[in-house]
Amino acid sequence: MSMIEENRAQASAALPGPSLAGVEDFLALLKPRVMSLVVITALTSFVAAPAGLHPVLAAVALLCIAVGAGASGALNMWWDADIDAVMSRTANRPVPAGRVTPGEALAFGMTLSVGSVLMLGLTANWLAAGLLAFTIFFYVVVYTMWLKRWTPQNIVIGGLAGAMPPMVAWAAATGTVGLESAVLVALIFMWTPPHFWALCLIKSDDYARAGVPMLTITAGPDETRRQILLYSIALAPLGVAPAFVGLGGPLYLAVAIVVGLEFLRRAVKVYRVREGDAARKAAGGLFGFSLIHLFALFFVLIAEKLVGIAPLTGPVPGWM
């Protein structure tokens, strides 16, 4: 074998083979289910915000926020491929399954991150673009790279990233950060720990195998149940708060009270039922209902605006 042929053979061996990634793999990198939550919460701000953008510009801005959220999901999957590979829930994700190379996921995530932030800045304003950039940075660097593998408070603090979309959208629509959007952020922020820890109670083995210091592993299931109950109690008043800052009307208040009480009832059940299948069922029930709870609250806020039900109170004056 000549030296040229030898070098070529070595180069071929060092290169990854032709990509087997399909379009659906790149869509999976965007975490579509998380993206749907981002879309509904951001859409609520666009619908509820006073004055605001032209509907076409608002739609483009909403797309930017959704793509920014998807981009941070792709970067999360790039960094966490080693963890995802050993967890049953995530082992079939595109990177650990080998369908997308880490380099492809990184390039895809970075391109969409930069593109979505710049596009939002051009479409709406640079405050919104800055908040979107902060959200992506917080999710990828602060949560994924730092908190997730370091502290059991990972999803408490990291939950801020998932809670930010209503504020980004509010800033895009109004050019400022209102108390209304802060209340929505606080609502999602307080909702995240009981939602996620309920899942952890079911998938604790997965996280233990991956070495992720979730609360169920570091403090045990009983302490996790206590924390779920405490956060659920704190969540209850935040669920009805939008009705008192000029966002929600009487229908919202009624729905918020009903789903808030049901959330609390399920959290108490998780706290009390600690053994066997019944305990798993209670945790699974809380996890499933938490999704219904959040979607219901934001759907009602949108529906009230669309059918013209007035908020119970006017906007809070003099806040930012």
Binding site: R8, S12, A13, L15, P16, G17, P18, S19, L20, A21, G22, V23, F26, G98
Partner: peptide
């Protein structure tokens, strides 16, 4: 990871049908 097909001096890297289909979709 996909294997790189053996080189043919004239044809270069030869992609499989599946690789071609996915590249076209991308």
């Amino acid at each position: 990871m996909a294997m790189v097909e053996p080189h043919d001096e004239d044809k270069g890297l030869v992609l499989t049908e599946e690789q071609l289909r996915r590249r076209k979709a991308r």
